[in-house]
Design a protein around this nucleic acid. Sequence first.
DNA 1: TCTAGCACTCTAATCTAACGAGTGACAAAT
DNA 2: ATTTGTCACTCGTTAGATTAGAGTGCTAGA
Lengths: 332, 332
Amino acid sequence: MIGSREEQVLKLIIEEYIKTAKPVGSSCICEALNCSSATVRNEMASLEQKGYLEKTHISSGRVPSEKGYRYYVDNLMKPKDMTGEEMLKLQTIFHNNSLQISDAINKSLQIISDMTNYTSVILGSTSNENRLKKVEILPLEENKIVAIVITDKGHVEHKNLMINKNISVDEVRQTTDLINKLLVGTPIDEVSEKLEFEIKPIIAKYVKQHEVIYNAFYSAFNEFAEKSNMHFVGKTNILKQPEFNSVDKIKNIISKFEDNDIVDSIKEEDSGINIYIGSENELDEDVTIIKTKYDIGNENGTIAIVGPKRMEYDKVVGLLEYLKSNIDNENL
Amino acid sequence: MIGSREEQVLKLIIEEYIKTAKPVGSSCICEALNCSSATVRNEMASLEQKGYLEKTHISSGRVPSEKGYRYYVDNLMKPKDMTGEEMLKLQTIFHNNSLQISDAINKSLQIISDMTNYTSVILGSTSNENRLKKVEILPLEENKIVAIVITDKGHVEHKNLMINKNISVDEVRQTTDLINKLLVGTPIDEVSEKLEFEIKPIIAKYVKQHEVIYNAFYSAFNEFAEKSNMHFVGKTNILKQPEFNSVDKIKNIISKFEDNDIVDSIKEEDSGINIYIGSENELDEDVTIIKTKYDIGNENGTIAIVGPKRMEYDKVVGLLEYLKSNIDNENL
DNA sequence: TCTAGCACTCTAATCTAACGAGTGACAAAT
DNA sequence: ATTTGTCACTCGTTAGATTAGAGTGCTAGA
């Protein structure tokens, strides 16, 4: 059906629905096609038959189905160029050298969230790609110490804790040295295990209060597993969309955000821009997620935009493409 | 009016309203007082006159006013003892030695949020009480470094950044040493200023790429100012309360949470348990905030519970008192 | 193959009526 | 002097009825 009028009708309906969020009637389309509403109705009926459109009730206008959006995204949509003003805003961020790259991505997504009224998510590199670079123990006031864990990708976690006063600084230092000697280079999600079976038996012999020190590092390492390194921008933006007009829907989506369910929804995939419409994503059947991976030197992660299924696909894809090109430029 | 029947009526109405969230009628109260509804109506009229009760419309039941809640909290309410089961849950957390104290507080508030269906907030010590303990620069792969800033209270911030390849490790180390020599002990919110006026002029002389290093530390220090060190537990719990039954109210309270407006609402005050009812707090006139400070050795902060004005004051105060006593016990 | 017209369907908005929970006031009872 | 029973009245809520309007499917004719 490439190039057919049917396709035209689908495109017009989807774009109209994206604008208005209201079911689209035939009369609304016929002007753009120079034909009568009856003709459009025939095309609509055909499109509905094939599953690209749906009706909210028997005599309503048409609403795109997931299949319809999918066809639109795959075949009809062209990424929209940004306005000069928008480009300028993003460019200045990346040309500002005082910003490190991850800050620049952050700031960009702030702007994108503002421009689109959707919610952005930044998902940093997952812990299993990180390897232990260094651990450090620093005595603070009184009987307090801070344990610091640093990975080769620049992740840092820390854990404060009280130690018994009769624990010696030397003992602490010995343990630290041991970990640094034996575990540096280990993938961070294997460290806990190695800590227990390789380090603990050794320090147990000659460090009296080894439990405390062991626990300190153990919990610092576990922090990596727990922290998903995820960051939302404009979390409430999606609530501005008219599809979230009921208390239940809002509660639902907000608690899914809180529970970090989105991590699972953003699976690994190719390095392009991926679109997950409605039930294609794991998060919520009412939303679309558009995501892409970024990779700068050895820092990598995923950026995602979450909006209603009725999302401005062309605009968001255009924005992400532009953002991606900026990130790549940085990456010489 | 101490001990009067009027007081009884107020207490019963408030407690009934807390339970049901519906305006309380006279007939509902008269059984408990062994008198007729007409008598209760007279008392109610008097209480309304004095401003302790309100009506939603001319012929509705009564609803407590803020003044009513305030009187209840100040004069009528007794902190409620927890059930044995509840006590047990919290106690085991504090008797679990492998948890550091701040984790224990975290876990406790998780439980309290679950038990009450309110939202908890943990606000750590503010940055101006922290003094610089140590800065550190660590070279990572390729041309990437991580700058780490540690304070005497055990706060740690870090900043990853790329440096030009022709910058030498020595230059980086010189700068680090200089900062450690000159700025250790400085309150963290004065560090940025000192960095600019005391350190920058010196390194500018002999470090070629001083801008990059300077910026790294500058932004790491600024992180302290930006991060409010605040942590929500059960952010969506408050949405379960029937007063948040409209889309607008939910959007309103959620975006106030997101904007961290609550920091301003939790002002410094005495070390007891403070209650801010409705317009008494800055956050939102529909909520009550109950807060208390904690202080363990040199780690201190604030715990707050946010719920509807129709909050179970006795239960929450009881819980917080118990939690506080547990924290204090830890603090020998 | 397209179009005009018509009967039909369903939503959303507006109105009405009835019900019930609750009040205020007042006179009678304690 | 206080308490109680009673009665008229108010207002919110719910359900049903009505209407206007947008939109469809279908069919006959261009």
